[in-house]
Design a protein around this nucleic acid. Structure first.
Lengths: 334, 334
DNA sequence: CTGTTAGCGCCTTCAG
DNA sequence: CTGAAGGCGCTAACAG
């Protein structure tokens, strides 16, 4: 494998000049640069990441930390990040943190601290104080796609508003008996994404004078959503509408409704959150949060900081939008 | 950030000893080792990946190359790989190659050659000769999860047998008019996964004396499968069964059948391939190929080679299995 | 078992 | 604009 001195020799210059020509840092005459580029090309020279990193402190890699790889939202955000980063010549180092606390600690205390990355993006991770500190200690740009976390720079959807939007939509159609399907977190857990969506739901209901804010816990899977919906719909005074905190749960709800012989939206309206591609096939009305775009935004934010931009302190705001595909309508009964 | 000499000083030994104690390579007395470990721990020392790689040639990272991140099969295999690798202290560097040939070349000619990884796993990539050569030139263990490719070590499902199994199942139920929904590749393209599944289909049909091997091309998405099924079912002499080369297409086919008012399996039987988790919700009969397990297998294969095992030359065989969930039955008409 | 001593391959002042 | 030279932080012989 060719090294930098092979290129230097072939181009008749010093290794310093090769380095400058190839990295674009420091002045090199056009003629020299072309000669170097040609030599590098013909020798198939590619700079060694470790040598370059060791000498320069830059790695041309971004770490991405996710809690799940095999769920739609995460792989879609990841795809967005990858697109944007590859285009700029960055590699992605993937850190998948499991539920196991010991393994999770190892990722933060060991893997992430190997100085292998120039920046970090976390996706929907609830970082505790220690983890936030550990990330900040890396001394690299960090962007968290997540609910607001005062400890790191975040890019976040206003999930309170998301919850309000979905609920307002149902209320506007005339629904009064509405069940929210969401995470089981204690509502006062405060700022987690599921808690915010739920609080938005309750706020709007309260403002409309609806005192009956129903709730069924579920785990953000189709299966969980299906079970939660089945429980809700089995009640004697069944809800006329379901608001699920994710599209996967909403799809589960649609399947559960069908199982009970209920037509959507005639017998029960269902709305989700996410913009899952599958939603289209179920005619699912949802609050789209443009997952892929979130990944791209995060990547751009991180790249900008690496280019010397001011770290976007605090919170960036991510867009969301109601997409009506027909799974909600006015209630046919009261 | 603490360096190796800080640890050496704190433990009262040389840096060489610290290196040996921490890496486990080379002899160190238990007492010394414990002292070093304690010092490292209390200083929060983590070895620098670039310095260590440069000196040792090892990176403790494995590259994973995928064509898509946001499709179920790929993210599921990736999750399997990640699980197995993280447990051994390896990082994953992700290379997502797009359809754009120029970008694709950059991944093989530039990114992968930065000597940032100790091994490579490719998922369902059809490598041309140049790309295979490029990978082999890396001089690291390579495992390709893919159709047989003589140029690199592969871990492959016998997709001819998969095609035969699905078709035999339908034939056994009494179907004779069967449409295969698969990739549009010319059948003689030979050894690609979709081509093999299709060939298995045609072989079994021919052996049973069925001369009418129907085919509809599609792109492995729900949407494509739906459109292909719609075309097939619109024919005057409509098929009584559909064999889709992926579960996503099979789900699309189920949706298309429903759209036409057909009941599955009463009016039309449908079988897929993959073991997609969603299949359960559609009662989809499929040939499961255990995607997550494939990732784990690949990771273990690569780790074994890194541990000095002989490269498993040639092809490893991956399991598959018919899972009957009820979307196939005897034809009700002829 | 442990310390000393060269690098690993490249980047980056510092002169020229 | 270009070259010389000293590290970047760690590992791997080689002695002892």
């Amino acid at each position: 494998m060719a090294g930098i001195d092979d290129v230097a020799r072939a181009a008749g210059v010093s290794t310093a000049t090769v380095s400058r020509a190839l990295s674009g840092r420091g002045p090199v005459s056009v003629a020299t640069r072309d000669r170097v580029l040609a030599a590098a090309e013909s020798l198939g020279y590619v700079v060694s990441a470790s040598a370059s990193s060791l000498a320069s402190g830059r790695t041309r890699a971004v770490g991405v930390v996710v809690p799940f790889l095999d769920r739609w939202f995460f792989s879609t955000v990841l795809a967005g990040i990858s697109d944007a980063l590859v285009r700029k010549g960055y590699d992605i180092t993937l850190y998948s943190v499991s539920a196991d606390p010991a393994e999770r600690r190892r990722v933060f205390d060991d893997h992430l601290r190997r100085r292998r990355i120039d920046a970090v993006i976390t996706i929907a991770l609830e970082l505790d104080a220690e983890e936030s500190a550990s990330l900040n200690g890396l001394d690299v740009p960090i962007v968290a796609i997540a609910g607001p976390n005062p400890l790191v720079t975040t890019l976040t959807v206003d999930d309170l508003a998301v919850g309000r939007l979905a609920t307002t939509h149902l209320l506007g159609l005339g629904h009064r008996r509405i069940t929210h399907i969401g995470a089981d977190a204690a509502i006062d857990a405060g700022s987690t994404v599921p808690a915010l969506r739920r609080r938005g739901f309750e706020q709007v209901l309260a403002e409309a004078g609806v005192t009956d804010a129903r709730f069924e816990p579920a785990d953000f899977t189709i299966e969980g959503g299906s079970a939660a919906a089945a429980r809700a719909l089995a009640a004697p005074d069944a809800p006329t509408a379901l608001f699920a905190a994710s599209d996967e749960m909403a799809i589960g709800a649609i399947l559960a409704a069908r199982d009970r012989g209920l037509r959507v939206p005639h017998d029960v309206s269902i709305i989700g959150v996410d913009g899952h591609e599958l939603g289209r096939w179920f005619g699912l009305t949802t609050v789209d949060q443009f997952a892929r775009g979130q990944g791209e935004r995060a990547a751009h934010a991180v790249l900008a900081e690496l280019d010397g931009a001011e770290p976007a302190r605090g919170r960036g705001t991510l867009p969301f939008e109601l997409v009506d595909r027909g799974s909600t309508a006015a209630p046919s009964r009261r």
